Amino acid sequence: MKRRTNSLRKVYCDYCGRETEYVDSKVIYGKSYGKIYLCRNCMAYVGVHKGTDKPLGRLANAELRNWKKAAHAVFDPLWKYGRFRGHRNAAYAWLAQKMGLPVEKTHIGMFDVGQCRKAIEIIEKETKGDRYGRYQKDPR
């Protein structure tokens, strides 16, 4: 991603290669949650870090968004309630080691479909029998 002279990044779609638009998320959600990069051709999009124009990860189409949701459904209980309770970075470091990825490249927001599938498989295998299952909420 490169900077434009008006300080916005140039972000290109991973699917069609077109330059994305920097728009309000209201375009997608009907309510504003901040800015996003949107490829209208593919309807792929990604949010940005609050107060910046830095993408939260890679652009995602409908399929990838579904896989990211599934990955979060098994990953989030690990750091919210499970073995890494309250330590999200430690959970990502553990996942990085298990996936054979550098820690800085290990984030569900950056994953493609294959990486989401692999993460789900690893987490489900490694946490089999753990108290906190896929969709279980904090019991307190």
Rank of each mutant, 00 (worst) to 15 (best):
M1P: 03
K2T: 10
T5R: 01
T5P: 07
N6M: 05
S7T: 11
R9S: 08
R9P: 07
D14A: 04
Y15T: 06
C16V: 11
G17D: 05
T20Q: 03
T20I: 03
S25F: 12
S25G: 14
I28F: 08
I28H: 04
Y29F: 15
Y29L: 12
Y29N: 09
Y33M: 14
K35S: 13
I36K: 03
L38C: 06
L38T: 04
V46I: 15
V48G: 02
V48Q: 11
H49N: 11
K50T: 13
K50Q: 07
T52N: 11
D53A: 09
G57T: 04
A62R: 15
R65E: 08
R65W: 00
W67C: 00
H72F: 13
P77V: 06
P77T: 13
L78H: 09
W79D: 02
R83A: 08
F84P: 08
F84D: 07
R85Q: 13
G86F: 06
H87N: 15
H87E: 12
R88K: 15
R88N: 02
N89R: 12
A91D: 14
A91W: 13
L95N: 08
L95W: 09
K98F: 00
M99P: 02
G100N: 09
G100V: 10
L101Q: 13
H107V: 01
I108T: 14
G109A: 10
M110D: 15
F111H: 02
F111Y: 06
D112E: 08
D112G: 13
Q115K: 13
C116W: 10
I120P: 01
E121Y: 04
E121I: 01
I122V: 14
I123R: 05
I123G: 05
E124R: 15
K125P: 02
K125T: 10
K125M: 08
D130P: 09
D130T: 05
D130C: 00
R131W: 05
Y132L: 12
G133R: 09
Y135C: 01
K137F: 07
